[in-house]
Design a protein around this nucleic acid. Sequence first.
DNA 1: CCGTCCGCCGAAAATACCTTTCAAAGGTGA
DNA 2: TCACCTTTGAAAGGTATTTTCGGCGGACGG
Lengths: 303, 303
Amino acid sequence: MKEIFAGETPPAPAALAAKVRTLAPSMTRSMQRVAETVAGDPAGCAALTVTGLAERTGTSEATVVRTARLLGYPGYRDLRLALAGLAAHQQSGRAPAVTADIAVDDPIADVVAKLAYDEQQTLADTAAGLDTVQLGAAVSALAAAGRIDVYGVGASGLVAQDLHQKLLRIGLIAHAFSDPHLAVTNAVQLRAKDVAIAITHSGSTGDVIEPLRVAFERGATTVAITGRPDGPVSQYADHVLTTSTARESELRPAAMSSRTSQLLVVDCLFIGVAQRTYETAAPALAASYEALAHRHSPRGSQR
Amino acid sequence: MKEIFAGETPPAPAALAAKVRTLAPSMTRSMQRVAETVAGDPAGCAALTVTGLAERTGTSEATVVRTARLLGYPGYRDLRLALAGLAAHQQSGRAPAVTADIAVDDPIADVVAKLAYDEQQTLADTAAGLDTVQLGAAVSALAAAGRIDVYGVGASGLVAQDLHQKLLRIGLIAHAFSDPHLAVTNAVQLRAKDVAIAITHSGSTGDVIEPLRVAFERGATTVAITGRPDGPVSQYADHVLTTSTARESELRPAAMSSRTSQLLVVDCLFIGVAQRTYETAAPALAASYEALAHRHSPRGSQR
DNA sequence: CCGTCCGCCGAAAATACCTTTCAAAGGTGA
DNA sequence: TCACCTTTGAAAGGTATTTTCGGCGGACGG
C-alpha cells in the first residue's frame, strides 16, 4: 500500500465541487467546513489569504493548508489559483435552475427534469474527476489480460455484470461475481497476466475487497472502481478509478448516482479496450450484433 | 506618490491582451517584455512566481511588480490570480470537438469526454421525450400493484434487475426475469391488480414481448419501456414509455446509450412510486440502508 | 567632447504570506 | 478510568512578494 496516493489527483481543473463531495467523508469536521466554504463560494475565497480563509471558516491556517493538500494541491497557493480559474469559469456559464432537491410532492414532470439534471451533473463530475493515467493503465492491463474477473455486490453487482457482458462481446474472457464465496474461490485461480476489478461505491465493502485482495496477492493486476479512493479497497488496487458522488436525499439513494458514475467509468474502460484490440474487437462486435438480429421480432409482430 | 493608480482601472476581467496593447506605448522596454510574455501565455505565467517570471523575461522582480501595477492590479499576486482565471476561461473555450464520433485512435481523455457528453445528451433527449402522462399512469399502476413482474433480456436485463432491486427496497413485491420461459410461466399468474413491465430497446424482442402479451391477456396493467414506441411490443402495453436512441458507431454499440436512457426512465418510475407510497417507502429505504451499513469495512482498514 | 540630470532598472532588505512543527484538546475503545 | 489516537490551532520557520535604494545609461546643455 506504499504510494497509493502518489500523484493520485492531478491539479484538478473545474471539478472541485465534485472532488469536495468525493473526499468530504474522509475529512475531519474543520476540514469539511473549509472545503464547503471553498466549494460554495470559489470567487470569494480566491480573494482571501490563508489567514483570511482560516478566519472566515473559524479554523486555523494549518487546517486550510491541510484541506488544500487533501484536495490534491501542493498547498494553499495552488488551491487559490484553481479557485480563481473556477470562478472565472462559472462566471461565464450561468447557473442552472433545477438544483433543488426532489421533494415528496414534486409533480412527475419535475421529477424527470431533476433526475435527468442530477445524472447529467454526475456524468460531468465523473468525467472531470477521472484520472486518465490510471484509466489508461487499467485499459492496457485489460487489453493484455488472459482472464478478467469483476466483483460487485448489490447495485454495483449490476455494473459488474454490465462490464462482464461488454467484455465478452469483444472476445475477452471475463467473469462477474456477486457471490463473495465464488468470487474468492475463483480469485485464487488468477495469475500475473490476469486482471481483477472491484466495484464498490463505499470503498469498504468487505465482500468485494476480499476477492480483490486474493487476486492482488496472487500477482494479478487489480483495479478498483470506487467513490472513496482513500477507502480500504485501494490498498489492494494497482489502479484506482474514482467515481463521483452526488448529493443524495431521502428519496434519492446514493446507489442511483453512483451507478450512473460507475457505468460511465465502465463504458470508458470498454471503449478503451475495444480501441486497443480493434483488430479482434470490431469483428466480434459485428458478429454479436448479427447473432442478435434474428431474435428481434421472430414471432408475433403481425402488425 | 502612493495612490496615483488607485481606482484607475478595475480588476480587468479577460480583456488583458487588449489592455496590454493599449498600455504598451507608455511602458518601458522591460515592462513591455513582461507584459507581452504575460499576454502571450497566461496559463504558463500563472504557474510562475515573481522570480520565475522575472527570470523568464530576463528582468527583475521589481519590474514584474511594476508591470502588474500598471495593468491595474494591486500587485503581482493579483495579476497572477487574474491570469489563472483567464487561462481557465480560454481553456473552456476550446471544447466543441466532443461532438465528433469516437475514433479508434482517440486518446483516452477524448474518449472520456465524448462518452460523458453523449450520455448527457441521451439523458436530455430522454427527459425531453418522456410522456409524463404515461409515466404518471405507470407510476399509479405500480403504486397500487399487488405484484410486479419485469422482463428484459441482454443489456435490458440489467435494467430490469435494477428496477427490481429498487422496487424491493421500498417494500413492493417485484420480480425480474431474463429467462423467457420463466417469464412466461410466471406471467400466467398475474391478475388484474398486477403490473408487468417489458424493457426492450428494439421494441421487437420476442423473448420479452411474449410474457408481456400473456400478462396483458390475463388482465394485468402492462408497461413497455422501449426505444421504438411503434414496435410490436406496444401492442400489448397499456402505457408506453419511450427511451431515446442516440447515434451509435462501430465502437459504441446502441446498447450503451439505450441503457442510459432506460435507467433514467426506471429511476423516474422508482422515485414516482416512492413518492406515492412515501409512508411505507421512506422507512423501508432507511431500513435497507441501515441493514447494509454494518457490511461496510468489517475487516481491513488498519493503517 | 564632457558634465550633469533624469528616469529606468535590478539587488537586496523588508514585509506579507504560506508552510511546518509541535503540543494540547478532544474523542474512542479497552 | 486510562491509554491511545486523532484532530486542532499557536507559533516557529520558510518562501514569495513588495519596497527601498543606489547604480547605470542616455539625453541635453555647455
